[in-house]
């Protein structure tokens, strides 16, 4: 089973080419995000973006669609119905792409651990580069996480998207197990 700690240790020996290192410098210093407002964590983003904490000083900014974004923030619990849309959004994003899971709900289900509708582990379905613990994490914790993500990208450790490509069967099997079918078939898609 996918263990994030082992995975990052494996990629620690640096096999990147020079141009990839240069590209990683740009990617680390300009992170556009798409935050998926599934739960209460979306509420912590406005203070992080505006004048008190000002994430733009790290070169980060919000983007309107997943295609334009580099990092997907899953801000809170995910119901099975939302998970389908999250997988859609994640697969629409362009490589390299990163995922940050917010709060204990994405980590282990949090207070919804026994709910019939919400999943308990996000990294079963899409690769998560970074988790922020807390219920919900405060803006300080979020800024700290962004710092960590930037350092990870600079070192070439944020390789979740590669992991997703290499282990797609495993992720897809998990998605099918929990959702039966990833394809969205609601009344707006008829």
């Amino acid at each position: 089973m996918f263990n994030i700690v082992e995975d990052t240790q494996k990629t620690r020996e640096d096999t990147r080419k020079t141009w990839e290192k240069i590209a990683d410098y740009f990617r680390a210093n300009s992170i556009w995000m798409k935050w998926y407002c599934t739960g209460c964590g979306a509420m912590e983003m406005p203070p992080t973006m505006t004048s008190r904490f000002d994430m733009e000083q790290l070169g980060m900014g919000p983007m309107a669609t997943p295609r334009q974004a580099d990092v997907l923030l899953i801000t809170g619990y995910l119901s099975a119905k939302t998970l389908r849309r999250v997988i859609y959004s994640y697969e629409q994003m362009q490589d390299p792409k990163y995922v940050i899971g917010f709060g204990s709900c994405t980590l282990n289900g949090g207070i919804y651990f026994d709910s019939y509708a919400t999943m308990t582990r996000l990294d079963h379905y899409i690769p998560v580069d970074l988790y922020i613990a807390g219920c919900m994490p405060r803006p300080e914790a979020i800024m700290n996480a962004f710092d960590t993500l930037i350092a990870m990208i600079k070192k070439g450790e944020a390789k979740g998207w590669k992991h997703y490509q290499d282990n797609y069967e495993w992720y897809n099997a998990n998605q099918i197990h929990s959702l039966k079918e990833v394809r969205v078939k609601d009344e707006f898609h008829e």
Binding site: A80, L107, S115, Y116
Partner: peptide
């Protein structure tokens, strides 16, 4: 799922593997 004889914990453990 809102019927009282439905067991959400068992369903969750079966469908959504825990960490």
């Amino acid at each position: 799922p809102m019927r009282k004889d439905f067991d959400p914990l068992a369903y969750s453990q079966d469908k959504f593997p825990e960490r």
